[in-house]
Design a protein around this nucleic acid. Structure first.
Lengths: 150, 150
DNA sequence: ATATATGCAAAGGATTTGCACGGTT
DNA sequence: AACCGTGCAAATCCTTTGCATATAT
């Protein structure tokens, strides 16, 4: 169970009440490097906080997504996954997804020049389709180290 | 109902039997520019071919994905969507996704230089993570023309 | 004190599975 | 004829909703 309400201040203006489940879920996501599903979050929290309900996890995740504190990811495995969102602007990273075992690896290895080109692409899209780009998502699919061997 | 088995030849080696539902589903996907869900495909086909079952649609879509003839897409709206895969190599396109109305726009506006850089990035990933990139996916999220107005 | 958050149980949707029948080879 | 593909119904899995209770402010 997390200590005092470490994340409370980031909630000003988004929500009225800062509660223990909300703190616990955000704290967990801020610590892990995994891309956890609602069920996984629930299971992890349940061991230290048996009172928690799966419904609350879902509702809290929704809330956190809407207030921009976490990202919702869908890799097509039938459930949504969530990741903590660093406060830094433009702190984009990519995901490497192993199509064999489902492992997801974070990486932030795009070069500055690539990011600039991406920005340029966004400008083109804005003009051509009159579409305002707010965010982007880049994923690489393939085989991870382990799965290549077997 | 599609005519003769137009797509049969592309199935050599993947499957033993080429049947009407398989033909109809692949044909539909090859014609539409939409990103249809299983239910939508089922509903569309049902009007011309009332015998078809939703299960067959799901199973056929699986088959077509596995044999590389279509792509499975997940935009996080709770259902998978499917798109025909052109035969051409490196024929990658991107998706613009409106976060308000859910509209999905196809575009292929990445420049050659961008694609080259992407390839370079893939090489970096291969070396750093020992991850073999087989495919990639780029999405842009934002507001479409209509939704900007309202 | 009062409005909001929570937990439980039930409902809702998408997708998968078991099984007998029908169609392709 | 043999085997694969299909449709139906039931089962699963993830997620959302209704409602009475508990809790933060």
């Amino acid at each position: 169970m997390p200590g005092p309400y470490k994340w409370r201040h980031r909630f000003q203006g988004y929500v009225c009440r800062w509660t223990l489940p909300r703190e616990a879920i955000l704290d967990l996501l801020s610590r892990t490097s995994k891309h956890m599903s609602a069920k996984e979050i629930y299971a992890t929290l349940y061991s230290m906080y048996p009172g928690i309900g799966l419904t609350t996890v879902y509702r809290t995740l929704d809330l956190l997504v809407r207030s921009g504190m976490i990202n919702r990811l869908s890799f097509g495995d039938g459930q949504n996954r969530y990741e903590f969102r660093s406060g830094k602007k433009e702190e984009h990273h990519q995901h490497l997804i192993c199509t064999k075992c489902g492992r997801i690896i974070d990486c932030s290895d795009l070069f500055t020049e690539q990011l600039e080109l991406l920005k340029k692409a966004e400008d083109v899209l804005t003009k051509k389709y009159n579409f305002t780009v707010l965010d982007h998502n880049i994923e690489f699919y393939g085989l991870c180290e382990k799965c290549k061997k077997s």
